[in-house]
């Protein structure tokens, strides 16, 4: 279980992983040494698994498409969902992979340069896979919000008085 202090620290890092231990220390009241030690442990325990900026590719003009793919799989004796997922996740085209409850089993997020790329991946790699029973591909048209960040919304420009009591 996380202590309140650790939770605060992790949230801060999740918000902005560029903050140095010294800066984190000022903002949390924890010592830089403690922070360094804790971050080291979290990295080792795979609690912190990466430090990546969030890029809104649609604003770069770069060609990029993504599709959400619902997949039904055929789990077999000795070969359950986890094993199938572990194999599927090796494809670099698959950027996210989740096990779902409900009408199908796995959701994949697949990215490529063009719709053709994605379609080819599904047709040639995914659908013929021995554990895959069926797929349904939904192309992503627009990203409004991702990982808590509103990508399309106009900035909420708050207009406060410059000085108030």
């Amino acid at each position: 279980m996380l202590t309140d202090e650790d939770r605060r620290l992790l949230k801060l890092i999740a918000q902005d992983c560029r903050l140095k231990p010294e800066e984190l220390s000022i903002q949390t009241g924890l010592s830089p040494d403690y922070i360094k030690k804790r971050i080291g442990e979290w990295e080792k325990e795979k609690v912190i698994v990466g430090y990546q900026p969030m890029i809104n590719w649609s604003r770069t003009g770069e060609e990029k498409v993504a599709a959400l793919i619902e997949v039904r799989v055929l789990p077999q004796r000795g070969y359950g969902f986890d094993k199938i997922a572990k194999r599927l996740q090796k494809y670099p085209e698959i950027t996210s992979l989740f096990l779902m409850s409900g009408g199908y089993d796995l959701t994949l997020l697949v990215e490529g340069k063009t719709m053709q790329d994605v379609a080819l991946f599904v047709a040639e790699k995914l659908a013929p896979h021995e554990h895959v029973q069926s797929t349904a591909t939904h192309f992503l048209l627009r990203r409004y919000k991702q990982d808590g960040v509103e990508l399309m919304g106009e900035e909420e420009t708050i207009q406060r008085l410059v000085v108030s009591p």
Partner: peptide
């Protein structure tokens, strides 16, 4: 272009 620290209300919406 003034940075104001003069406001007595939250910056959150």
């Amino acid at each position: 272009d003034v940075i104001s620290l003069g406001v007595g209300e939250p910056d959150f919406v």
